[in-house]
């Protein structure tokens, strides 16, 4: 089976010469949930923006469901952006339309869906995150947790091959955090979760990789990685106070 995501030797330097990624290799099979861990400044967000061709690699490549990401190929890029659903960290960045339903419709409408088909997509995506009741509300009238769930719906509406979440648990209260975890676990989709919230990674993702200084430095079962105190310390990752993981 074609993996949802195959990244080989991905290298990226900013125009000012700063090297952010130094050869990243990562393969995520269909249906797997993987946590991408790393300290601040490890290149996590830079990496994510390569997955749908917003950043252009200076070396190596990305394939999504077998389709190579090539920023010069505009039609291919459109399909890549359908396949990779990125949920950004701040829902206020993601939700820019006047109502929730219009925001969820934005992606599929860009894909050319109209009328009943479009409305069906919107309902389906909002139902998947349990937000059907707020469809006609304005995003800024929702709570932060609700906004994050709607943000997830906006990319689910594009029926992505892989869902990429940038710090999904940030700023959530414990109840919203638990609810979001339940929703994410119920979605039948490949998941890449970028985070430094280690307990959340353990809760949701059987497999984890650690990105540091632009390279994947560890790849394995999340529990094993989190039980390795030396490994975590070397890469500026820490479990919350009083929290221990045994392999």
């Amino acid at each position: 089976m074609t993996p949802s995501l195959r990244v080989t030797g991905l290298h990226f330097a900013y125009p000012d010469g700063h090297v952010a990624l130094r050869g990243v290799d990562l393969t995520v099979p269909q249906g797997e949930r993987v946590a991408l861990l790393g300290p601040n400044g490890a290149g996590k967000t830079t990496f994510v923006l390569h997955l749908n061709g917003i950043n252009t690699a200076t070396g190596g490549g990305v394939e999504v469901g077998g389709l190579a990401v090539d920023p010069r190929d505009r039609t291919g890029l459109k399909e890549v952006r359908r396949r990779v659903g990125i949920v950004f960290q701040d829902p206020d960045d993601q939700l820019f339309m006047p109502t929730v339903a219009e925001d969820v419709a934005f992606g599929p409408a860009n894909l050319g869906l109209r009328g009943a088909e479009l409305a069906e997509r919107v309902d389906e995506a909002l139902a998947a995150v349990g937000m059907g009741a707020v469809r006609d509300r304005a995003p800024h009238h929702l709570s932060f947790g609700q906004r994050r769930r709607v943000a997830v719906a906006t990319v689910l509406a594009m029926r992505p091959e892989i869902l990429v979440l940038d710090e999904p648990s940030s700023n959530l209260d414990p109840a919203s955090r638990r609810e979001l975890a339940g929703i994410l676990r119920s979605l039948p989709v490949t998941l890449l979760m970028v985070t430094h919230d280690l307990p959340y990674a353990l809760e949701l993702c059987p497999r984890a990789v650690i990105l540091d200084e632009g390279r994947i430095v560890a790849d394995g079962p999340t529990r094993e990685l989190l039980a390795d105190a030396d490994l975590l310390e070397r890469h500026r990752l820490e479990l919350p106070f009083g929290y221990t993981v045994t392999a």
């Binding site: 923006l49 749908n52 917003i54 459109k78 952006r81 359908r82 990779v84 990125i86 950004f88 701040d90 206020d92 960045d93 993601q94 820019f96 339309m97 339903a101 219009e102 419709a105 934005f106 992606g107 409408a109 860009n110 894909l111 869906l113 109209r114 009328g115 479009l118 409305a119 919107v122 906006t154 990319v155 594009m158």
Partner: peptide, 23 residues
């Protein structure tokens, strides 16, 4: 800066210069 992030989020969902008002 927010403008730039919003734009990135829009492009990620297939924005090509027109907001579809299809709903």
């Amino acid at each position: 800066e927010r403008g730039e992030r919003v734009y990135l989020a829009m492009v990620s969902r297939g924005y090509e210069g027109r907001i579809p008002l299809s709903l």
